[in-house]
């Protein structure tokens, strides 16, 4: 029994005949900043979705604080989802609600905070993500980068243990990418453990202290950022080069 916060143990997952994960294992300790890399379609999103129970794995186990969380009933997931939050690629803001209501939603659901306290909390997180005074705006009034940051704020507002970021910088201009990485660092400094799925190598180098690469359904690389930078393993090199081209496009 290790003292890992989250353990992914030999998981398998396929859709029809397509095998996505064929024995993926790794473990996270508290406060780590993991970069999860891999070519498109290697199952990074599926892995994150499996951790929070939006997808069910075929084989293997996922442990959170030593408790199995891959086979819970829909009734038990809310408890886990308060501690492990998933930040969607698009932000997935509720488009019929304004920013305040979006951010207040998890607080109304899971806390007994008064309206003043909720108001103060929302003010605080908006300040943290550098978007003060946008409470009354609808998601459609925000730019893509702002939507992503509000979505990230919504997924951290309950002070989770772990945040799973699904490509938070995809499709952003360099200035917005810097902003998003800043926000992730701020969250991380509060003690949150992060998994950062990305194709953006500079952003990963900036944020992560450990890199995991998924390839052909397996973990192909799992080491510190220093090892990643200096590695001459073909997977990492090939990967770096491919990603370099993707970024250049």
């Amino acid at each position: 029994m290790s003292n890992s916060l989250l353990e992914i143990i030999d998981i398998y997952k396929s859709f029809d005949i397509k095998e996505v994960h064929k024995g993926v294992s790794f473990a996270l300790s508290k406060g780590e900043r993991i970069g999860l890399l891999g070519a498109s379609g290697t199952g990074k999103s599926v892995l994150l979705r499996s951790i929070v129970g939006l997808e069910f794995i075929d084989q293997g186990r996922i442990l959170y604080n030593g408790e199995r969380i891959d086979n819970l009933s829909e009734k038990d997931y809310p408890r886990i989802r308060k501690s492990i939050s998933y930040s969607f690629q698009s932000g997935a803001l509720f488009d019929s609600m304004n920013v305040f209501e979006n951010l207040a939603f998890p607080l109304f659901e899971h806390t007994d905070l008064s309206l003043e306290e909720i108001d103060a909390k929302i003010h605080e997180v908006l300040k943290l993500i550098g978007l003060e005074g946008i409470q009354h705006l609808l998601p459609s009034d925000l730019s893509g980068g702002m939507q992503k940051r509000v979505g990230m704020a919504r997924s951290m507002i309950l002070n989770p243990d772990i945040i799973l970021y699904d490509e938070p910088t995809a499709g952003l201009d360099p200035a917005n990418t810097v902003n998003v990485v800043k926000v992730m660092k701020k969250f991380s400094n509060t003690g949150v453990t992060s998994i950062f799925v990305t194709h953006d190598i500079p952003a990963a180098k900036e944020f992560c202290d450990r890199i995991i690469i998924l390839d052909k359904g397996h973990v192909a690389f799992d080491n510190t950022i220093e090892e990643f930078n200096n590695s001459d393993s073909p997977i990492v090199r090939k990967f770096l080069v491919t990603e370099g081209f993707e970024n250049a496009n």
């Binding site: 939006l54 829909e74 809310p78 690629q89 997935a92 488009d95 998890p106 659901e109 919504r154």
Partner: peptide, 21 residues
């Protein structure tokens, strides 16, 4: 139209991910 659009833009998943049903 409303819930269908919510579903394809992952808002239904977001409801679940935020610990609601």
């Amino acid at each position: 139209a409303e819930i269908g659009a919510m579903n394809v833009t992952q808002q239904v998943d977001a409801l679940r991910a935020l610990g609601t049903d």
